[in-house]
């Protein structure tokens, strides 16, 4: 097997890399098929962020609503979820959920599709479900396996970060001045109306500092995708950086993993910096006209 595929060739002079030198060699090396996979995996990271951020927010919103419930056992569920996820190393949760969710889904499918199955599902060290309950089915094409793995990763991220977001949103909901709710009640709004029409629109200003922090945290958690078995940037950096011998590739080189991880380090630093700048702008915009210290400072400056 040739580790660096010959196709697709972007530059015409790349047909015989052994004759090339310097920048030309580098330009050919950086455009091999494997490197394209590396560049695409940056997209995977961004896709994960784009899906996970709203999903985690939804989980967090649910958790915050549960925590506020008037029925004590319901609020314990919300608070317990938030406390449990925050008290344990996150990476343990990632490793746990990825297997637990997989087994949970297979177990449910097994119950639904093979009701006549009599053998126990846990046999010693094995987890056995009937063939048509396997997720994904053994006959599925490769892309379904990859998508399923990615979906599990997204769900895991959403569960873990949902707890963090839930904590932030719960705090924000309690920060909205009580007088606002009282006014809503005076207008004859029901509890539900007051929640959706008064509390929720106002809580975002209070939630923003916490949520921006969470966004930074989420960015820095994306390399953990690697632990969940997704072919992300960490996977490719290890794969591409390892030393390659001339026997197996057109582009032999020594151990370059250090340089590949340096690129990742710079990528994350740049991403963090850009996020910081953008979030600062949003904060500025949202405090405009608010009865807060930030809003007051803007009014005085104008």
């Amino acid at each position: 097997m040739r580790l660096h595929g010959k196709r697709p060739i972007i530059f015409s002079y790349c047909s015989d890399p052994s004759l090339l030198e310097g920048l030309k060699w580098l330009s050919c090396y950086l455009t091999t098929g494997k490197h394209m996979g590396f560049y695409v995996s940056f997209g995977t990271v961004l896709l994960l962020l784009a899906i996970t951020a709203p999903a985690a927010l939804a989980f967090g919103f649910g958790a915050a609503m549960l925590s506020r419930a008037r029925l004590a056992p319901v609020s314990w569920i919300g608070k317990g979820y938030i406390a449990a996820v925050r008290g344990v190393p996150d990476i343990a949760f990632f490793l746990f959920f990825v297997i637990a969710l997989d087994q949970g889904i297979e177990w449910l499918l097994h119950q639904a599709r093979c009701p006549d199955w009599s053998d126990p599902i846990r046999q010693g060290n094995d987890f056995v479900v009937c063939d048509i309950a396997k997720m994904p089915l053994g006959t599925s094409p490769q892309w379904i396996h990859e998508t399923y793995g990615f979906a599990l990763a997204v769900l895991t991220f959403a569960i873990v970060f949902g707890a963090f977001a839930g904590n932030v949103l719960y705090g924000a909901m309690s920060s909205v001045p009580r007088a606002q709710i009282e006014t809503a009640e005076a207008y004859g709004m029901t509890r539900r109306q007051a929640f959706w029409r008064i509390l929720v629109p106002q809580m975002w200003v209070y939630a923003l500092p916490g949520l921006s922090n969470l966004w930074m945290v989420l960015i820095k958690a994306t390399p953990l995708l690697f632990l969940l078995g997704v072919e992300d940037i960490v996977y490719w950096a290890r794969e591409l950086g390892g030393s390659k011998m001339a026997r197996f590739t057109d582009y032999p080189h020594g151990d370059w993993r250090m340089w590949y991880f340096l690129v990742l380090l710079v990528f994350y630093l740049a991403f963090t910096r850009v996020s910081e700048v953008v979030l600062a702008r949003i904060t500025l915009k949202l405090s405009h006209g608010q009865a807060t210290v930030g809003g007051e400072a803007q009014r005085k400056a104008a």
Binding site: A221, M258, F261, Y268, L269
Partner: peptide, 22 residues
């Protein structure tokens, strides 16, 4: 402070390990 707070610890470990190997 920016270098270590702005990048994931996971990547820092990887980079450091390969740097040490080098």
């Amino acid at each position: 402070i920016f270098l270590f707070r702005g990048s994931p610890l996971f990547i820092q470990f990887f980079f450091a390990y390969f740097l040490f190997i080098y």
